[in-house]
Design a protein around this nucleic acid. Structure first.
Lengths: 137, 137
DNA sequence: TTTTAATTGCAACAATGTTGCATTTATGTA
DNA sequence: TACATAAATGCAACATTGTTGCAATTAAAA
């Protein structure tokens, strides 16, 4: 995904291709995994914190990225590879490696079956798995 | 669970039966569901915030309660009914009702099976379900 | 009742996230 | 290419959540 394609993606969604947005997306395309807000802040250097928050908001809202994992002290975002515009991150498992801390979205090789046999009506699942990632095995 | 029993539970774990600890546990025994920090703060009135944090910490550490659900702006705690001292909240599903906001620990009527067929080694699952609770159906 | 270690309350701080507003910038248009 | 304009940015200020150190208080054992 080159610069031109990123700009095109943004303009298609009526978002201006600003330096910050392009930088965030370039980083996400480079890594194939989710990236944390804190890591983005680090690598983006002297941008304003507020601008990053608003950048993320706009990218999430327009369906380019999604919130992969939310922890108390950090939040991870990932590209919406397999997500449709209106249905994000609902069905796949978000995985965090205990060893290297990397967060990724597991694909359909990992599927879930629920036994639902009581009074509660489950409509949505949010599953965080942890363990050892493919690089750390 | 009366006052005496609560005091006994605390002393068994070498915790002093202070006003705050007793109040928190009484509230948790009354409700059978998880209670959020913000709700505890409300009902406990003029206690110091710091004291509540440390009270929660001590109760979690000693295995009386566990963190049921952690959201960005609130954290829910529940009694360790079925959890052993060293193995908390690992295997059950935490449920939040979309309608009333109530958080509860689902029992073994709800279980999850994961098909694991890729490079990642899953060691632990943290499952948040949302939908409609038994009261709101 | 006294002792003492645990617990509390306070003040101060750190991190994360939000809002309003004036300034700047990307983009469509002339 | 220059201009107009709506969108995006940077700044200051603030809210919320959680933490630490320390002196004062309290539960429980002696």
């Amino acid at each position: 995904m080159g610069l031109e394609e990123i700009k095109k993606t943004l303009n298609e969604r009526k978002l201006k291709a600003t330096t910050m947005r392009v930088a965030v997306l370039e980083q996400l395309y480079k890594e194939s995994n989710a990236i944390s807000l804190s890591k983005m802040q680090e690598s983006l250097g002297d941008f304003d914190r507020v601008t990053l928050y608003r950048t993320i908001q706009s990218l999430v809202k327009s369906g380019i990225i999604h919130k992969a994992l939310e922890e108390k002290h950090d939040t991870f975002y990932a590209l919406c590879n397999d997500c449709s515009l209106h249905n994000h991150s609902h069905s796949h498992i978000h995985f965090k490696c205990d060893n290297c801390g990397e967060v990724s979205c597991l694909d359909s090789n990992y599927s879930i079956q629920i036994k639902e046999d009581g009074d509660y009506k489950i409509k949505q699942l949010n599953i965080k798995a942890s363990g050892v990632c493919s690089n750390c095995i």
